[in-house]
Amino acid sequence: MQEQLGFDFGAMPKKLVRVTPAKLATWADCPRRFRMAYLDRPAPPRGGAWAHNTLGAVVHNALKALFDLPAAKRTPEQAVALLHRHWKNDGFRDEEQAAVYRGRAEGWVRGYVDELDTSIEPVGIERWVSTPTSKIVAEGRVDRIDLRDGELVIVDYKTGRHALTVDDARGSQALALYALAARRTLRKPCHRVELHHLPTGTVSVWEHTEESLARHVSRAEEAADELGLAGDTLAAGGDPEVLFPPRTGNQCTWCDFRRSCPEGRQAAPTLDPWALLAP
C-alpha cells in the first residue's frame, strides 16, 4: 500500500550494536566467556575475587574520591587516607600479604599525587561517554577526562605488574573509543590519550589522528558484527556451543567462569587468587 501511494521507505535501518571496550575485549578473548558474561540468563556463577583486581579497584576509587574534594585538600596525605578508607582484603592470601600491598599502593598514590597538578578540574571523573558510528554505539566509563588548551585528554589509570609503553597507548582500542565518545558527549576535540602507570610513575602518551581513530572504529565494528550476529542467531535457537566456542589459552587461568568451562580447566592450571600480583 505504501508503494502504491508513492512512498518508498526502503529497508529498515539495521539496529546499532551497543558495545563497550570490555565487551569487545571479552569477545576477542573468548566467545564462550562473552556468552556467559553478557547473554546467559541466569549467568553462570563467577569465581571469587582476585587480589590484583582488588588492588586496582581500590586505587581507582581513592583517586576518584580525591578529585571529589576541593583542590586545596587534594594532598598526597589525603590520597593515602582515601586509599585506607576504600581498602579491601578480597583475594589476598591473608592480612599480612594485604598489608604489604597496601603499603605499596600507599607509595603509588602518594608519589602520583605529589607530582600531579591537583589544581586542575577534570571535566569528567568516572564519566560515562557514548557515540554512535555507522554500525555501533561505542560507550564506556573513563577514569578521568582533562581539558587542556581547549582539547579533551583521556586519562586511564593502570596498576598492573608490567610497565607500559607508547605502543600500549597507541594500540588501546578502549582509549581510542573513549576519545571518540568523549568528543561526541562533551562537544570538544579529543585526540590525546594517556596511560598513567602508578607503580612506575610513568605516563604513556599517544596523539591519535582521524585516520588512526577510524582504524580502531573499523576493527570495533567488525567485532560488533560478529558478536551481534552470534547473539541474534542464539536468540533464534542456534547452538551456543557452535556460535560461542571456547578460545583456550593462558587466559583460562583467571577466567571468572572457569568452573563452568571444562576446556578452560584443562587448558590452564588453577592459580591462587593472589598469584597475579607483582612479586
Results as ranks from 00 to 15, higher is better:
residue 148 R to K: 15
residue 48 G to P: 05
residue 76 P to S: 00
residue 19 V to I: 15
residue 198 L to W: 04
residue 164 L to T: 14
residue 123 V to C: 05
residue 62 A to T: 10
residue 107 G to Y: 08
residue 166 V to T: 15
residue 31 P to G: 07
residue 33 R to F: 02
residue 56 G to M: 00
residue 32 R to M: 05
residue 198 L to A: 00
residue 102 R to V: 08
residue 148 R to L: 13
residue 208 H to C: 06
residue 62 A to R: 01
residue 78 Q to M: 12
residue 260 S to K: 03
residue 166 V to W: 12
residue 32 R to F: 01
residue 6 G to Q: 05
residue 261 C to I: 03
residue 272 D to E: 15
residue 106 E to Q: 12
residue 87 W to F: 10
residue 102 R to C: 14
residue 103 G to E: 09
residue 208 H to P: 03
residue 19 V to A: 04
residue 16 L to Q: 12
residue 183 R to D: 03
residue 245 P to A: 04
residue 185 T to I: 07
residue 13 P to G: 09
residue 120 I to L: 12
residue 171 G to K: 11
residue 276 L to A: 13
residue 65 A to T: 10
residue 211 E to S: 13
residue 70 P to D: 10
residue 130 S to N: 09
residue 153 V to F: 01
residue 206 W to V: 03
residue 246 P to V: 12
residue 35 R to Q: 11
residue 49 A to H: 11
residue 93 R to K: 13
residue 199 P to N: 05
residue 220 A to W: 05
residue 77 E to L: 11
residue 129 V to D: 01
residue 68 D to N: 14
residue 242 V to Y: 02
residue 90 D to H: 10
residue 268 A to I: 07
residue 218 S to T: 13
residue 6 G to W: 03
residue 91 G to A: 01
residue 199 P to E: 06
residue 13 P to K: 08
residue 2 Q to W: 11
residue 39 L to V: 00
residue 186 L to T: 14
residue 102 R to K: 13
residue 181 A to V: 03
residue 134 S to M: 12
residue 46 R to D: 00
residue 143 D to N: 11
residue 147 L to R: 13
residue 30 C to S: 00
residue 124 G to V: 08
residue 44 P to I: 02
residue 10 G to V: 07
residue 214 A to M: 02
residue 139 E to P: 05
residue 214 A to Y: 03
residue 152 L to V: 02
residue 203 V to T: 14
residue 17 V to H: 08
residue 257 F to T: 04
residue 10 G to L: 04
residue 273 P to D: 10
residue 150 G to A: 06
residue 8 D to V: 11
residue 89 N to I: 15
residue 199 P to S: 00
residue 66 L to D: 01
residue 276 L to M: 15
residue 202 T to R: 13
residue 100 V to A: 13
residue 164 L to P: 05
residue 82 L to C: 03
residue 149 D to K: 15
residue 120 I to M: 12
residue 45 P to R: 10
residue 165 T to C: 06
residue 239 D to L: 00
residue 235 A to S: 11
residue 243 L to Y: 06
residue 274 W to C: 04
residue 190 C to P: 00
residue 48 G to S: 08
residue 100 V to Q: 12
residue 279 P to G: 14
residue 262 P to T: 10
residue 46 R to F: 02
residue 115 E to R: 13
residue 157 Y to W: 15
residue 130 S to Y: 01
residue 124 G to Q: 06
residue 156 D to W: 05
residue 260 S to I: 07
residue 166 V to P: 03
residue 144 R to H: 07
residue 181 A to G: 05
residue 206 W to G: 02
residue 43 A to C: 01
residue 59 V to H: 02
residue 272 D to K: 14
residue 124 G to M: 04
residue 210 E to D: 15
residue 35 R to A: 06
residue 114 D to V: 11
residue 238 G to M: 01
residue 41 R to C: 09
residue 179 A to Y: 04
residue 207 E to M: 09
residue 278 A to L: 12
residue 43 A to H: 10
residue 125 I to A: 03
residue 72 A to W: 10
